[in-house]
Each structure stands twice: as structure tokens, then as C-alpha cells.
């Protein structure tokens, strides 16, 4: 039986999970997921707490490596390479796959240094070049006008929404191909959330964006494709509009209509 979730053609897929599982010790948090994530689109992953959606997201740039008991099985293909292969350099992978976290986490450094952190890692030392990258990234994340006069100030002085956009700018500064967002607005107020959502709309096309969210309206608003996960299993993956209006699976319908979860 062909997997109904493989609606993206292989050539359009940027990320491709093949029977991909993640284990915490003996506990299988992500169970044999097959999913193709399209290039240049926004893909949302929804599901109740503990369904493995964050674990799946973090697996894409191997952030789960930080947890000693965590291991992955199956293949996660990124540009025809399994990122879990032994010859993969995690550092360069993470530079190509940027990540924005649940809580804004700017470094306790100046705004400039925060954005320049990634480029400096890549060996860029010239002040002019760095300034250009910083300005470009801040403009892209729609925060330039608010901070251009206070780049020397500590990033922790900014509001939560500004901090999160700064984190996006910081991720963009290393010119990644993919941007992973792990519930990026859950710690923000509605106004700041709107700004982030607008930003996601502007960024799609240039980047492949994968966003994990608790908020179904948000998924409906910002994403082109949506995946629904439940208890580690990918239940349904489809075009966002279809998934919310005509879900194929009963569980999806129950979840989006608020009957459980």
C-alpha cells in the first residue's frame, strides 16, 4: 500500500525521513516516520503534548545528540545524504539547518555580537563584512528599525518578542537552508506572535521552514503543509487547507475539532 503521507514528489523534498525513529532509552518517541518536507515552503507539525513533534524537529539538526540516552534509527535524508551517517559533520549540518527555540534565548552579549556569533564561527573577522551581515539579517527578521541605534546594547534588555526576532536574525546570519522553529511564539504575547507569523510569511520561499506549534490556528495561518503526529506516529500529512477542512483520518479530525488533546 502506498503511503498516503508521501504527497510530495521525491525531487521536491528537501528533507526526507525514511522509517525514522527516535528512542529515549527504551521508549520510542518517534515511530518509523516517513515524511517528505518540501523545499521553500512552510511546514507545520501539530499534535498533543508528548506526541514526539519536538523530538522529530530536533532530530533534523541533531540537537537530540545532546541527550545522552537518545538515539535515532532509520534515515533522515537531507540533500541525498543521511544526516545520521557517520561521516557527517554535525557542526556544518547545524550551520545549514538553523533553529529557533521555544523561549527566546539570546546570548548575554550585545545585539551585534549575538547576530555576529554565527558568522564569526565561519571565520568572518572583518568588521565591515560582519556589519553588513548583521544589518542584512536584522532587516530580514524585521527588527532592524527597532534596534539599529542600539546595536551595542545588551540583548537581554529587549522585550520578549524582540528577543525572539533577534534569535531568528541570529539563525539567518549563517545563511541556513532550513529553519526549524520549536513553538517560537509560545512564550510571547499576541502582538509579538503576529509579528513573528508575518515574518514567517516573508521568509518562506527563501528558506524551508518547519514549525512545531501547539496552536492550530497558527498552523492554519502560516503553513503550506501540515503534519499531525500522535504518540510518535505520523498520522496524517497534507496540504494545510485540506488537512484542516477534510482530514483523511479520524484521529486528525478529533484533534482539530478539539475532541481530545
Amino acid at each position: 500500500m502506498p503511503d498516503t503521507n508521501l504527497i510530495i514528489e521525491e525531487k521536491d523534498a528537501h528533507i526526507k525521513a525514511e522509517d525514522f525513529s527516535v528512542f529515549y532509552g527504551n521508549n520510542e518517541a518517534v515511530k518509523k516516520v516517513n515524511m517528505r518536507i518540501p523545499k521553500g515552503k512552510v511546514t507545520a507539525i501539530i499534535g498533543p503534548s508528548g506526541c514526539g513533534k519536538s523530538t522529530y524537529l530536533r532530530a533534523i539538526n541533531r540537537m537530540n545528540d545532546l541527550i545522552p540516552i537518545c538515539r535515532a534509527d532509520g534515515a533522515m535524508m537531507f540533500d541525498k545524504q543521511d544526516i545520521y551517517a557517520s561521516n557527517i559533520d554535525v557542526v556544518s549540518l547545524r550551520q545549514r539547518v538553523g533553529m529557533v527555540f521555544q523561549k527566546p534565548n539570546p546570548f548575554p552579549k550585545s545585539i551585534f555580537d549575538n547576530v555576529a556569533y554565527g558568522p564569526r564561527l565561519l571565520g568572518i573577522k572583518k568588521k565591515a563584512e560582519l556589519s553588513e551581515i548583521v544589518e542584512h539579517s536584522l532587516k530580514k527578521s524585521a527588527i532592524w528599525d527597532e534596534v539599529k541605534d542600539r546595536l551595542k546594547e545588551n540583548a537581554l534588555c529587549m522585550s520578549g518578542g524582540q528577543q525572539q526576532r533577534l534569535c531568528i536574525a541570529r539563525a539567518l546570519a549563517v545563511q541556513p537552508e532550513i529553519l526549524l522553529m520549536d513553538e517560537p511564539t509560545s512564550a510571547l504575547d499576541p502582538k509579538a506572535t503576529t509579528k513573528i507569523e508575518d515574518l514567517i510569511g516573508e521568509l518562506c520561499g527563501d528558506y524551508t521552514i518547519i514549525i512545531v506549534t501547539h496552536n492550530m490556528q497558527q498552523a492554519a495561518r502560516v503553513s503550506d503543509f501540515t503534519a499531525f503526529m500522535y504518540e510518535g506516529i505520523l498520522i496524517e500529512f497534507g496540504i494545510t487547507k485540506n488537512l484542516f477542512e477534510k482530514p483523511r483520518e479520524k484521529q486528525t479530525e478529533d484533534y482539530i475539532t478539539g475532541r481530545f488533546g
Binding site: 539538526n61 540537537m63 545532546l66 557542526v91 556544518s92 549540518l93 547545524r94 550551520q95 538553523g98 533553529m99 527555540f101 523561549k103 534565548n105 539570546p106 546570548f107 548575554p108 556569533y117 554565527g118 564561527l121 565561519l122 534569535c167 541570529r170 539563525a171 549563517v174
Partner: peptide
């Protein structure tokens, strides 16, 4: 979160 952010940037 500091460590995650830094590692996430490829450090």
C-alpha cells in the same frame, strides 16, 4: 538554552 542556541548555530 544558551548551549542549545550556540550549538544550534554550528558551534
Amino acid at each position: 538554552t544558551y548551549r542549545e542556541a550556540s550549538l544550534g548555530l554550528g558551534a
